[in-house]
Amino acid sequence: MKAHLKVKRKRSQKQEVWKFIVFAVVLSSIFLLYPIFYSMYLSLHSMQGLQSVFVGFGNYLRMFQDDIFVKALMNNFTFLIFQVPIMVILGLLMAFLLNTPNLKGRTFFKLALFLPCVTSLVSYAVLFKMMFQIGGIINNALLNIGTIQSPIDWLNSPFWVKVTVIIALCWRWTGYNMIFYLAGLQNISDDTLEAADIDGANGFQKFFQVVIPQLKPVIVFTTITSTIGTIQLFDEVVNLTGGGPSNETLTAAQLIYNHSFIYTSNFGYSATLSWALVVIIAVLSIVQLKISNRD
């Protein structure tokens, strides 16, 4: 009798799930699955303009010898290694501080810290490009404060240009991630924080012992999405640095775009590079999930 019920329930669950996911599945099939198969098909061809030649895995072999692709990937990783941790930590700290009781000017701070993410990627990249000019406002300010003796060529020095991109990314995305932490903090029950207060926990303890563990799912998910975002970085570098100087800020996504629209319109090779990116992102995400699930 019981077993019978269970089977029935399972069957009904099988139908229930479809009622919920049907729209997403249909849309995914048309606008993702089909294009993906098509792009796999493309990746086996080498193209130039309208000419297309079947090359089998030739594109993949070519990719392994492609120093520029390697360099672009290394740039992606550099951005990833510095920007994501800085951003996550700053975002958490901001969210936590904004959430402390009796904070004066809470509304102002919250609004101020939110502000960067209301700008579009194109807009802020254009703004930062102007601000970081050699004769621009950032150098003027630093020279006036006396932090630096001579202007820094932010956009043309191989080192500083990376710093510029990381600063820009942090500026734009920290407040954005903070939103998710704030939203996550809403779901932490009052009791938990009250209990910590009663136990006499100070700010640091509350932050590390209560907030962080409770927010873990949100942190994991912002880390993974930021990772994906950084690996797919495109709009910002295109508008801020154009990938230069000397490909020092060229990203993999920009290289893919260049192969599609700037060089020889070789969509086959672009598709190949895209698939390599997919594999890399998948591995990174799985690693991050595994690490976060360990404890």
């Binding site: 100087p245 000397s246 060229l250 260049n258 020889t264």
Partner: peptide, 14 residues
């Protein structure tokens, strides 16, 4: 492929 040549040169000049 002028554009590709331009990019190739710009990537090494510095």
């Amino acid at each position: 492929n002028t554009q590709a040549a331009v990019d190739a040169l710009r990537s090494v000049l510095q």
